[in-house]
């Protein structure tokens, strides 16, 4: 079932190309000395692309996702969503941009255990409006159905890990993001669930025309991507991905 067949009505936020230019990110190590986590001279991810980020632990995959999401700003360089220089926006504007543009999927799902499936999916809608309107409720129900979640009234804490990640994906795409960021979305699942969840993630992104950036060690998941970027190998090399 294509997402466009869902009772949404509102237009999908249009995916735009993402540019990272001259980005450097330093962390402070345990000894207090700074070390370079990321050094990306040039990276362009075209609108609607599905890109995997691969690299050893500590190579900066998660930091890159946080950088793209505007949760941190680079020590040098810029992150831009088409013409909008996200990395130089003030915090409230970045929050707003993130809310309107990005859907985030985490390795450990990060649902609110005390809320039920429906409330977890619609939670991001409460960041900007007082009431969740009927269309959003219907869209949440349709997304849950799309993810194979039957009972919307079950509390998140009683769900299996696979079910939790499906709820998290539904939550990420509720607001029709143009950019979906996933940080090891299958790493906490067994192989069978990992496969299903990976397939669903890629499908909803493709059907929505959203850009999907997925940091992962999971070869099966990375195989579903159009491109895979080696993060360790990124440093110092100019890189542009063709769509």
């Amino acid at each position: 079932m294509p997402v466009s067949a869902l009772p949404d009505g509102a237009a999908q936020a249009a995916a735009k190309p993402l540019h990272l230019h001259g980005v450097r990110l330093d962390h402070r190590g345990g000894d207090g000395r700074p070390f370079r986590v990321l050094d990306i001279p040039d990276l362009t991810i075209p609108a609607g692309a599905r890109v995997g980020l691969r690299g050893p632990s500590g190579s900066g995959k998660t930091s890159l996702l946080h950088l793209i999401a505007g949760l941190i700003v680079p020590d040098a360089g810029s992150v831009a969503w088409d013409a909008k220089a996200v990395s130089s926006l003030p915090i409230p504007a970045r929050d707003l941009w993130r809310r309107e543009t990005i859907g985030f999927v985490f390795q450990d799902f990060h649902l609110i255990p005390e809320l039920d499936v429906a409330a977890n999916i619609t939670l991001p809608a409460t960041f900007s409006s007082w009431r969740i309107d009927k269309a959003q409720h219907e869209r949440a129900a349709a997304l849950a159905g799309r993810m194979g979640l039957g009972d919307l009234r079950r509390k998140a804490r009683v769900l299996s890990r696979g079910e939790q990640q499906r709820v998290a994906i539904a939550r990420a795409v509720l607001g029709r993001p143009a950019l979906i960021l996933a940080d090891e979305p299958t790493a906490s699942l067994d192989a069978e669930h990992a496969n299903e969840v990976g397939a669903l993630l890629v499908e909803v992104a493709r059907e929505a025309g959203a850009t999907l950036i997925c940091a992962s060690h999971d070869a099966a998941l990375l195989a579903r991507m159009e491109r895979v970027v080696e993060i360790g190998a990124l440093t110092g090399k100019p890189l542009a991905l063709a769509s």
């Binding site: 409230p92 707003l96 809310r99 990005i102 939670l123 991001p124 960041f127 607001g175």
Partner: peptide, 16 residues
């Protein structure tokens, strides 16, 4: 802290 950080990552403003 992590619970609220997740909300922020999902787009919640600081005021929320």
């Amino acid at each position: 802290r992590r619970r609220y950080a997740v909300l922020r990552a999902l787009g919640a403003p600081r005021a929320y």
